[in-house]
Structures are given as C-alpha cells and as structure tokens.
C-alpha cells in the first residue's frame, strides 16, 4: 500500500476503478454525483458581482445556479473543486511529479516556445470548454463519468460528441507531425 503511494503513476484501470468506487460512495452516502463545471458558474458570478452586483442578481442563470432558494455559493461541489486542487497538489508532491509547465513540449513543437501565444490559446480553449459544458449541462465529470455510469441518454450524447470534436480538432491542429511527436 505504501509502495503504491510512492509510485508517481498508477495504471488507468486502478484509477478508473477508484473513481467508480468513489461514485458508489457519493451516490450511496452523500446522495450526490461527481461534477465540477457548475461551480465555475458560481465562481464567475461571484467575481462578476464585485463590479456589477445588480446585474448578477438579475441574471436567471446565476439565480438558478447559486443565488436562488436552497442554492448556495459554497456547497458540496464547490468544496469538491477546492479539494480536487489540493488532492492533485498533495499527490504530485508525494509522488515527486510536481513540475512547473509553462508551454507544453507538444504545443511548442507546433507553435513555438512563446508563452503569450500558449496562454492566449489556453484562455480561449477554456472559454469554449466551459461554455460547451454549460450548454450541454455537464462536463467530462458530470456527464462523462457520473452520467455515463447512470446510462443517461444526455451523457452518452455528450460523450460521443465531445470525443469526436476533440479527435478532429487535435488532428487539424497538430497533424501527422504532431502525432509522431506525441508518440516519440
């Protein structure tokens, strides 16, 4: 067991089974399903409320997500997202795999080592990721794992759709040279 804790990388089957069992616990004991992207709406609304509180209070989606009756800003899922950050940090430190990455190698092989370009692309990618997740009503956790394991029609539709879009986009962006680089 201690040996496993020291190993910096675990088999995807061990990790997958672990997440599956974690889902048993969240469904059975907490009456919740793993998810993360809703908390980004609460966080965005909280930040926006610093400059335009009335605008946020009047927004239907913010009310539905964290301002309305029985909804909270700091809730189970927001704590999960905070825990996720800390859990990854602890794991990386214990497994000695913490490392500062500014521009990933694969990205640099295609677009050069410039930081500004990478940071701008990451930002735009992030905009699409969360906008898409909210339109679909879930992300790789809420739909991909929690919805997938419940055999939800919504989630399997999302899964097929995002995976196909990811495959096509990556092939278009990196091409064959990128594939070779990723393999090597």
């Amino acid at each position: 067991m201690l040996n496993l804790l020291n190993r910096s990388r675990w088999s995807p089957y061990v990790v997958g089974a672990g997440i599956g069992i974690l889902s048993w616990i969240t469904f059975g004991l907490m009456h919740k399903a793993l998810g993360t992207s809703t908390s980004f709406v609460s966080a965005a609304g909280a930040i926006e409320s610093l400059v335009a509180p009335d605008h946020v209070r009047a927004n239907e989606y913010f009310v539905k997500t964290f301002l309305g009756e029985g909804k909270f800003f700091l809730d189970w899922q927001m704590m999960l997202v905070i825990g996720l950050f800390l859990g990854a940090l602890i794991s990386a430190r214990l497994g000695r795999s913490y490392h500062v990455e500014k521009v990933p190698e694969l990205w640099a092989s295609r677009f050069g080592p410039g930081r500004a370009r990478r940071y701008a692309a990451a930002f735009l990618g992030g905009v699409l990721v969360l906008f898409g997740a909210r339109l679909a009503d879930g992300c790789t956790s809420g739909h991909g794992i929690s919805g997938g394991l419940q055999l939800a029609v919504s989630s399997w539709t999302f899964f097929i759709s995002f995976f196909a879009a990811g495959l096509i986009t990556a092939m278009l962006v990196y091409g064959k040279a990128g594939r070779r680089h990723a393999q090597g």
């Binding site: 990451a122 990618g125 990721v129 969360l130 906008f131 997740a133 790789t140 990811g166």
Partner: peptide, 17 residues
Amino acid sequence: GGLIFGIGMAVLGYCPG
C-alpha cells in the same frame, strides 16, 4: 455543447476538473 467542449478541450489540453 459537446462539440464546443471537445474543440476547447483539444486546444486547452484539459477539461474543467
């Protein structure tokens, strides 16, 4: 939403979690 998410995820290299 999945299509937009997938494009963004391939560019960013991460999903929300």
